[in-house]
Write a protein that binds this DNA or RNA. Structure first.
Lengths: 123, 123
DNA sequence: CACTTGATTCGTTATTTGGCGAAGTGTAAT
DNA sequence: ATTACACTTCGCCAAATAACGAATCAAGTG
């Protein structure tokens, strides 16, 4: 029950579900996820922590960067949850939008991204 | 996305998930669900409304009683969610406890239940 | 009709949650 | 070593949420 509630609570936020979906089978560093969501770094970090603690994400530290990806060796509950989210939102317009936007973000220089989230762009 | 979020938010509460599971394939009136959860009628009513609006439950009015059951003709998302919850908690001790308790509640006279939830039992 | 009664809605309260910015951590570069 | 930087933690605030009791609604019953 503990695990199930952690998972459903993790999924019960739109931004967290978006993260899970646009990660797909790839890997993104935190600054790229920040760029995708357009939220404050601290907020995104918290979301990532919640997803990670629920077992939905795994992380990899590489120098100063931390890369997140969807958990590959998750428990049955975790795997079911991921499948449930993917199936339910496969055709969602918001998710499609994120997929497109991801292509753009991936083309950006990571260094630019990381700098950008500190110095507020003038819009 | 709307529907998905409604479902995950509905599942993101332990009491609501319990309702979904101990309903099983049967039907219970609100006073029985109140007895199962041991919460105030108004609270339970709200939980039922949330589950119903998410499409997870259907209701049937019979005289003064309202019977709830798990939605049979739900959308794909709804069906997946129900399956996800059932699979994830099939072996959960809390759920097993509820299943046992349900047997007791089903043996009670419904009229007694409905009276009881107003006049706080001395235990 | 008045009365009871099962269930919901309303109003309030306490807790949780999502968001931000500032401060802290740890790692690379200078 | 000092600085820069990627990320997290902390402290705070506003909004959402779970809980309750009181009031209300709806449907039998006397």
């Amino acid at each position: 029950m503990r695990e199930f509630m952690a998972i459903t609570k993790a999924l019960a936020d739109q931004n967290r579900t978006r993260i899970l979906l646009f990660l797909g089978d790839g890997e993104l560093c935190v600054c790229q996820i920040i760029e995708m969501l357009g939220l404050a770094p601290s907020t995104v970090s918290k979301h990532l922590t919640i997803l990670h603690q629920a077992g939905l994400l795994e992380s990899r530290k590489q120098g100063r960067w931390i890369h997140y990806r969807v958990a590959r060796d998750g428990s049955p509950q975790v795997r079911n949850a991921i499948e449930f989210a993917r199936a339910g939102l496969a055709d969602d317009p918001r998710v499609a939008e994120d997929r497109e936007r991801l292509a753009t973000v991936l083309k950006m220089d990571v260094a630019d991204l990381c700098c950008r989230y500190k110095t507020q762009e003038p819009t």
